[in-house]
Design a protein around this nucleic acid. Structure first.
Lengths: 292, 292
DNA sequence: AGCTCTTATGAATCATTGA
DNA sequence: GTCAATGATTCATAAGAGC
C-alpha cells in the first residue's frame, strides 16, 4: 500500500517568490488562500540594518499590502499577524494599535488577539522594564463565518491528569471493567476523554534559535498551530514576509500548499532551503517555483 | 523587641471615599500618590444592568478622570490600568486601543504592557474563539525617570523553592521579619537560597476572589505585585475604582497608605470591610476615614 | 509526607427572545 | 431592523480533605 504521507507530499505545492508582496500577489486570483500568516518586518529606526520601516510610516507602508491580502483571501479565510511594538525612548510604540484600527477601517474584522508567551525570551536587564516575554498574534477575518478547526489543536491536559493517566496501566482498566461489568469504566472513560482539552488564547511556545540569519524568526510551532487551526489539508497558505521560511517548513509536512514571498533575495534562498527535503528530493515538475 | 508588622500597621492610613473619583480627587493635593492602580469598569452595552459604560463613549468617560490622576500622581509615580476589551458581535472592541492613544495624547508615557495570564479562566466554548485567558496591565508614567523596585518582585527558580515557599505560611513571614527587623521578603529570599530571578512582563496569577459580592475583582496577588514593584513602604497608593477593595487588602499589609474610591455605596462598604482586621481592631484616630 | 479525589469558582460568549 | 435583556453552555485550575 502506498505511503499516505508520501502521497500527500507529492501533491504539495510550495513556492517562493522574491519581490514586493503587493506586486507579486497581483498574479494570484481572488479568494485563493485559506490562511495568510506572517511575521512582518517590525518598525525600526535602524533602517539600514534590517531594511526596517520607520514607526511613523508603518501603517502607510502596510495598508496597500493588506489590500492585496484581502483580495486573495477566501471569505472563509483567516489572516494572522504576529507582531510586537518596539520600545523607543523608554516607551512602547503605538504603530501596532494604529495598524489594528486601520485594518478594521479597511474592512477587516478583528476577531481575536492571541498571546504568544515566549518562555525563554531574550535576556537582558533594564532599569525601567522587565524582559519582554510575549508577542501579539492578531487574528483578522473577512467574515464572521470563518473556518476554525478547534479539535486540531487540542492540547494534553495538565500535570495532575497526565500523571494519573500514566499510572493507569492496562491491568487497572481490566480490573475496573470486570468489577463494574460494563464495557468501559465510566471514570476511566472520563479520564480518557479528558486527555486532550481545548487551548485558550494564550499560547506557550519556546523560541527557537535555529534560523539565526533572520532577525524576526518565530518558532515553527507557531505557524503550525495556526495552520492546523484555520486550514484543512490541501488548503493554501500564504506568508507574504516569509523570511527564513518557517511558515513553509511548517505548512508542507502538514499537507498544505504554501506560497512564501520576501523582498530580499537572501531570505528567498533561505526560504527555498526551508522546503522540507522530501520535496526537494522528489523535485516534481512545477512544484518548486522561484522567480527571484 | 517590637513586632515590626504591628508597628507598620499602626502607621498605615487606609481611606475609602464614596463618589466620582474625578470629584473626590479634587480634595487631594498635586503629586500626592506614588502609585495609581485600578481595574475600571469595563465597557458594556448593558448599561441598566451593571451600570456599565457604552464602548463608544468609554474614552470620553475616562479622560476627565485621567486628568485628575495625572495631577495627583508624583512625577516619579506609576499608573497601572488592568483592563480587557470585550467581544461584541464576534469582534474585539477597540476602545482599549483608543484609550491608550488618548492617554498618550494627554501626556502619559505608555511605558509597558504587562500581560496577566489567568490560568483558570472562565469556561465556555464557541465556534469562533477559545477561552479568554489574559488581560492587559497597562503601565503609564509621567516621566521617563520613575520609581521601580525590581528586586522586590523577584521569583524563585525551580520546584524546590516553590515547595518551600508554599509551606511558608503568613505567620512565618511575620515571625521572620520581626526577628530580623528589616523589610518584607528580602531576607526570606536570602534564607531560602540565592536562586531568584527577575520576572518577565507576563504575570501568571490564578483568578481568586474572596469578595463574592463584587463581580469585578482581580486577585490580590496582582495589586500586590505592582505595589511592591512601584512603591516603597510608607508610600501612597490610590485605587479610583476600588470595587470590593482588593487593592486596599493588598496595600495595607505591605505597609503602604492607600485611598480607595468608588461610585457605588455598596462597593464602598465592601472596600471598608476589606481593610485588614488589625487596622479595625487597633482603630487609631484618623487612621480610618470614610465619607461615603 | 505524598497521593488521590472532590469541590468551588472564575470581569465570558452566543443564540434567542421580546420591545 | 436594531437594540436590549436573558438563558444555556462551558472547563481547567487550586485548594483542601482524606487516606
Amino acid at each position: 500500500m502506498t505511503n499516505f504521507y508520501a502521497v500527500i507530499l507529492d501533491m504539495i505545492d510550495a513556492r517562493v517568490h522574491c519581490g514586493d508582496c503587493a506586486e507579486i500577489l497581483q498574479d494570484y486570483p481572488d479568494a485563493f488562500f485559506d490562511l495568510i500568516i506572517t511575521s512582518p518586518p517590525y518598525a525600526d529606526r535602524r533602517q539600514s540594518l534590517y531594511g526596517g520601516v520607520a514607526p511613523e510610516a508603518y501603517v502607510e507602508w502596510f495598508l496597500p499590502k493588506a489590500e492585496q491580502f484581502w483580495r486573495v483571501l477566501k471569505p472563509s479565510g483567516s489572516f494572522v499577524l504576529n507582531i510586537k511594538e518596539r520600545v523607543e525612548n523608554g516607551e512602547r510604540h503605538t504603530y501596532v494599535l494604529e495598524l489594528i484600527l486601520a485594518l478594521k477601517k479597511a474592512g477587516w474584522l478583528w476577531v481575536e488577539e492571541y498571546i504568544w508567551h515566549k518562555k525563554n525570551c531574550y535576556p537582558g536587564k533594564w532599569p525601567n522594564r522587565f524582559r519582554d516575554a510575549w508577542e501579539r498574534c492578531l487574528h483578522f477575518t473577512k467574515s464572521r463565518q470563518f473556518k476554525m478547526r478547534q479539535e486540531a489543536v487540542m492540547v494534553p491536559v495538565g500535570d495532575w491528569a497526565e500523571k494519573r493517566l500514566k499510572r493507569l496501566g492496562e491491568n487497572d482498566v481490566v480490573r475496573f471493567d470486570s468489577r463494574v461489568g460494563s464495557g468501559f469504566g465510566k471514570n476511566i472513560a472520563n479520564w480518557l476523554g479528558r486527555e486532550y482539552v481545548y487551548p485558550t488564547n494564550v499560547l506557550t511556545f519556546a523560541t527557537e534559535c535555529s534560523n539565526k540569519n533572520h532577525p524576526a524568526a518565530f518558532p515553527k510551532a507557531l505557524p503550525e498551530w495556526f495552520i492546523k487551526l484555520f486550514t484543512d489539508p490541501g488548503d493554501w497558505v500564504l506568508d507574504p514576509f516569509v523570511g527564513s521560511g518557517t511558515t513553509i517548513a511548517a505548512a508542507v509536512p502538514l499537507g498544505r500548499h504554501v506560497v512564501g514571498i520576501d523582498l530580499k533575495p537572501e531570505y528567498c534562498e533561505l526560504a527555498k532551503a526551508a522546503i522540507p527535503e522530501q520535496m526537494v528530493l522528489l523535485e516534481p515538475t512545477g512544484m518548486y517555483v522561484c522567480d527571484g
